[in-house]
Design a binder for these strands. Structure first.
Lengths: 221, 221
DNA sequence: GTCTATATGAGGATAGAC
DNA sequence: GTCTATCCTCATATAGAC
């Protein structure tokens, strides 16, 4: 198991070494920046814009952060730490695979609201952040790998236990589930017909039982 | 029905009015730029990079295009025109909803290879392009709306005909299908275990019949 | 159709006063 | 902790020679 923040300690440390001391002010600025990153993209967001929105001047931001990258770094780490912690909790339940997988789907959708901005940034700016020189954002890939292992293990367990059909590829199935959940940030808005819980149940229904009515078509293989 | 390129003529015109005359050279430059846009993001891609890759200097690009936006515009239009044309053809078959929907899924996946770069740009830079001043990229939303209508109509037809379960929301279901297909550009690479055709069949299986084995759980409502 | 040269502006970041 | 002022770099885009 790999710690998102690369510390030896297993405690949930919040920040990369280069960052300044913890503070509410700082957290507020991070949240604020995250919203703009999500709306316009990381690169299109200027430090002047972030500062404006916070009611200060751009130079003042550098009292809190040593660079724009540090801000987005903190946005993403916070999300990933929360997500992985919740997945781990679900896995510890030792329930049957279908139950665990359902719960993981619910966890995914439930992060859409609290972490909407972070998820949006992660999806839109992933390629760019990964293309930056240095290994600063390598933890993105490590976190992704760990999450993938969790999901794929459950799918395989479910196949071994006879709960899931065996003519689907576990990794491929995981990717499709993952994509379906996260991409929902693009269109999900709180206050619509369904909340994230409803979204999750809707998806679980289709995922497990399919869109077709009536008799199951024969299972290949 | 709305024409992607907003012309009165229904012929498939390839370019916005501001752009220069058609040419193979120009098309080559567009394809080349699309790859870089996809890799690094639209904003992070400089005209110097595009020109470099083409073996010319940045100033020379402006002989072919009047701005960087014009290039990405052409990338996206080309993809959307092709996609919508193919959807329309599928709808004209007048087959039953399940068959039509399957075919639309296949069409979606089949665009992953030829239009990989355009799809990537569309996903990563959609928010940014939409946030630009002016109505230049409004056609993105119009195209999206038209496609949504096509899908949702088929899902509703399928429900009315008894082929699809009625306890799912057509629009929501469409969105999840759409997302699952397009986001696959993030990880799909030609030459893997499955080609896009295989991907499509895999997804159609899970979509219609579900991941679970054995007896169907009861259909709610 | 490409090059040279350059205008013009914006962005990230810094230094030091307050 | 914020402001003022500014540096430095790099971006898009232009003008005109070849």
């Amino acid at each position: 198991m790999e710690d998102v923040n690369q510390r030896k300690s297993s405690t949930a440390v919040k920040r990369a070494p280069a960052a300044g001391p913890a503070s509410e002010r700082r957290d507020h600025l991070v949240k604020l920046a995250a919203e703009i990153f999500a709306r316009k993209g990381f690169q299109a967001t200027t430090v002047r814009e972030i500062a404006n929105e916070a009611g200060i001047l751009s130079g003042s931001l550098y009292h809190h952060f040593d660079s724009k990258e540090t801000i987005v770094d903190e946005v993403l780490r916070t999300f990933l730490e929360d997500l992985i912690a919740r997945y781990r909790a679900a896995l510890e339940s030792d329930a049957d695979p279908r139950t665990v997988l359902s719960e993981m789907v619910r966890i995914g959708f439930s992060t859409l609201e609290p972490h909407r901005a972070a998820i949006t940034v992660m999806q839109n700016d992933w390629n760019y952040l990964r293309s930056l020189p240095g290994d600063r954002f390598d933890y993105l890939v490590r976190a992704e790998d760990e999450v993938e292992r969790m999901w794929v293990d459950q799918i395989k367990r479910g196949q071994a236990a006879g709960q899931f059909r065996t003519d689907v590829d576990p990794k491929l199935t995981y990717r499709m589930i993952r994509d379906t959940i996260w991409v929902a940030v693009r269109w999900f808005r709180p206050g619509g017909r369904l909340n994230t819980g409803g979204l999750a149940e809707h998806y679980i229904t289709v995922l497990f039982d399919g869109l077709a009515t009536g008799a199951r078509t024969s299972q290949k293989s």
